[in-house]
Design a protein around this nucleic acid. Sequence first.
DNA 1: ACGGCCCTCCCCCGTCCGGCGGAGGCGGAT
DNA 2: ATCCGCCTCCGCCGGACGGGGGAGGGCCGT
Lengths: 222, 222
Amino acid sequence: MTSPRADSLRIVLADDERMVRTALRAILTAEPDLEVVGEAATGAEAVSVVRDLTPDVVLMDVRMPEIDGIRATEQILATLPDPPRIVVVTTFENDAYVYEALRAGASGFLLKRADADALVQAVRLVAHSDTLLFPSAVRALAAEHARSRPTPPPWVAKLTARERDVLRLMATGLTNAEIAGRIGVGPATVKTHVAAVLAKTGTRDRTQAVIAAYEAGFMKES
Amino acid sequence: MTSPRADSLRIVLADDERMVRTALRAILTAEPDLEVVGEAATGAEAVSVVRDLTPDVVLMDVRMPEIDGIRATEQILATLPDPPRIVVVTTFENDAYVYEALRAGASGFLLKRADADALVQAVRLVAHSDTLLFPSAVRALAAEHARSRPTPPPWVAKLTARERDVLRLMATGLTNAEIAGRIGVGPATVKTHVAAVLAKTGTRDRTQAVIAAYEAGFMKES
DNA sequence: ACGGCCCTCCCCCGTCCGGCGGAGGCGGAT
DNA sequence: ATCCGCCTCCGCCGGACGGGGGAGGGCCGT
């Protein structure tokens, strides 16, 4: 897709912290074959800067004001005919946003505490090739991960402790009577809790509630 | 962990196809800072060769006779005090083994059709750093992927096509009547299929059946 | 031609479930 | 001191569900 100029790699930095941009620029410009051609402090700015400068590689922070790195990545890849390779930069590994960014089409990701050597090699690597270390397999993996994620359910927070207990037991296949025996209350009480769970989850029967629990990843929070 | 010699990176190739080893050796030895110190044609051989030569990087094929690349990776990482970085080499992306290899502790993976430039850069990268492109986040992702796999349920095969349809619809929260309307049969027929599903899955009600479907990863085979 | 499997549908019946409205106690917040 | 949320229970009712048993038709392999 992106064809790097024969002379040097043109890079755009997008990060809301000036210090980070400065540090990245210092590291990258020390290399003769790398050139930082632009910076952006917000996602929106990143989109327009990239559109104007058509760099080879974008180092994109995930957490930025206005438009975050994921949306910016989406917009860049969707609107540009010959989009740059986008490397997502984050402070924490296991950042959930990273997976979404990869899903959005980012070519790689990078921790801010990576040393200078790794940084420049990564930029060169991602610019010259995508058959390696980030083939579509990883993107598919991330996509799958993100697909099972996008249910950061709003209702979980609204459930009371008791209702959570009951839902958890519902999701193991117990009947109301069995749940009652398990948590040491009367069957009528369980019915009340079940009704509350159904109302708060927006489901109409226990089966749908259990499905919602699974889809929301509720069963993994054991 | 691994501390590369200041002079050059010592590499071991493990692949059952001689041609592949030759090709990799040709590419790598063309670089002044890379040195191929050993080869192995089987997983078992790879383990002993690595143990003897203590290289910095191992390029490991996944599919090999006797012991495959995954087990070899496990054994190397488990038995050596200062293990090398292991890069898994595969022909096909989306190779399911790749995820298991990453889970076993491999530092990266590489497609055989990767070009020479990408190959050498990847080797350097993986030898010098792991804060980048394959931090533990990706490994955790691979682990999660592998963890959700090992549920190849025995009963799925025993379900008839119709019963699979019904189970799939059950797991979307539909009632028998709704399922009947959806697949264009009478409610009585659906009841029959549901009963068959319950019997074959060893569950007593639709809720437990849906749980079984989710636990078995049945819902991902859409 | 026959048995076997699958899909289709029927009736009866007992149970479980979910919706309705109501009630008491208890603790924390205002 | 009062209100509000949570937990605990009660009865009533209609509908959905699951078990049991039976039956007809189509397809396939023997």
